[in-house]
C-alpha cells in the first residue's frame, strides 16, 4: 500500500519561460509503500533537498502533485498544512533543530504539546521513545549539554512522538561522527522494523544509505536509477558504491 505518491513533480526557480530560470526537478515520479525505508541519493545540486521539501509540503512544486496518505498536499492552505505536518509527518534534520531553551524531554514533547495532548499521554510516550533510543538519562538536560548523537536521537524521538505516517530525514548523519552515525541509522532502522513507520532519507552518505531497503538516485532533477537491497548491509554498501561510480561519482 502506497503511503506517499509523487506524480510528475516539476520545480522551476524563476519564471519558466524567462532566461536564467533553473529547473531543479524535472518530472519526478515516486511511490513509497508503508513501512518502507527509502533513501534518495544524488550529488550536490541534484535536487534532493528540493524534492524532500516538496514531498513534505514545505515547498510547492511548479507542477505535479503529492499525495500523502491519500491527501493532496498542495491543495491545503498554510495553516492546515502546518497542522498536517505536525500530525502526520516527522522530521529529522542535519542540524538537529532542537530548541535550546527546552530540555530533551520538552523538545520531544513539543509536537504533542502543540496538539494539546494530555500530560499522562505525553509522559508515557516520551518514556517509551526514550527507552527505545536509550536517552532516559539525559531527559532533563538541555541540548547544549549533550553530544551530537544524543541530540539527533532526541530529534528522532521528537519526529516519532505523534505517530506520523512517514519520517523525513534530511542528511541526519551530516553533522555526526561515524560512531554516532551508526547509532542514528540503527535507530531509524528500529523505527521501521519495530514501529512499522515509513522513513524517507535524503543523503549523500553511502554508509547511511546502506541501511535502507531501496535507494533512488537522482541526477539533474530527474530520477536516474534505483537499487533494492537484496543482500546483507555490507554487501549492499559495496553495490551502492559501485553504482555511484557508474553514476559519475558523488
Amino acid at each position: 500500500m502506497s503511503v506517499l505518491e509523487a506524480r510528475n513533480i516539476v520545480k522551476v526557480y524563476g519564471k519558466a519561460e524567462a532566461e536564467g530560470a533553473t529547473t531543479a526537478l524535472n518530472g519526478i515520479q515516486l511511490s513509497v509503500t508503508k513501512g518502507e525505508f527509502l533513501a534518495i541519493m544524488g550529488p550536490s545540486g541534484s535536487g534532493k533537498t528540493t524534492l524532500l521539501n516538496i514531498l513534505s509540503g514545505i515547498d510547492k512544486p511548479t507542477s505535479g502533485e503529492v499525495l500523502l496518505g491519500g491527501v493532496m498536499l498542495h491543495d491545503m492552505d498554510a495553516n492546515s498544512l502546518a497542522q498536517f505536518r505536525r500530525k502526520q509527518l516527522g522530521f529529522v534534520f542535519q542540524d538537529f533543530n532542537l530548541l535550546d531553551s527546552l530540555t530533551v524531554k520538552e523538545n520531544i514533547m513539543l509536537p504533542m504539546i502543540l496538539e494539546k495532548k494530555s500530560v499522562s499521554e505525553m509522559e508515557e510516550k516520551v518514556q517509551e521513545l526514550a527507552g527505545l533510543f536509550e536517552i532516559e538519562d539525559i531527559l532533563h538536560k538541555y541540548p547544549y549539554h549533550i553530544s551530537g548523537g544524543q541530540q539527533q536521537r532526541t530529534a528522532v524521538s521528537r519526529a516519532l512522538v505523534n505517530d506520523p505516517q512517514i519520517i523525513y530525514a534530511d542528511e541526519p548523519t551530516g553533522n555526526l561522527d561515524s560512531k554516532s552515525s551508526t547509532t542514528i541509522m540503527e535507530c531509524l532502522e528500529k523505527v521501521v522494523k519495530e514501529l512499522s513507520t515509513t522513513v524517507l532519507l535524503v543523503t549523500h552518505d553511502v554508509f547511511a544509505a546502506s541501511y535502507c531497503q531501496r535507494i533512488v538516485f537522482i541526477r539533474d532533477g530527474a530520477i536516474h536509477s534505483s537499487l533494492e537491497k537484496k543482500s546483507e548491509r555490507t554487501k549492499f554498501l559495496d553495490e551502492v558504491m559501485e553504482h555511484l561510480t557508474l553514476l559519475g561519482g558523488n
Binding site: I58, A78, N79, R85, R86, F93, N97, L114
Partner: peptide, 15 residues
Amino acid sequence: QRIQKLYRIGITSKE
C-alpha cells in the same frame, strides 16, 4: 532561527 525551527516541526503562523 527559533521560529524557523518551530515552523519545521509544524507550528502554524497563528500559533
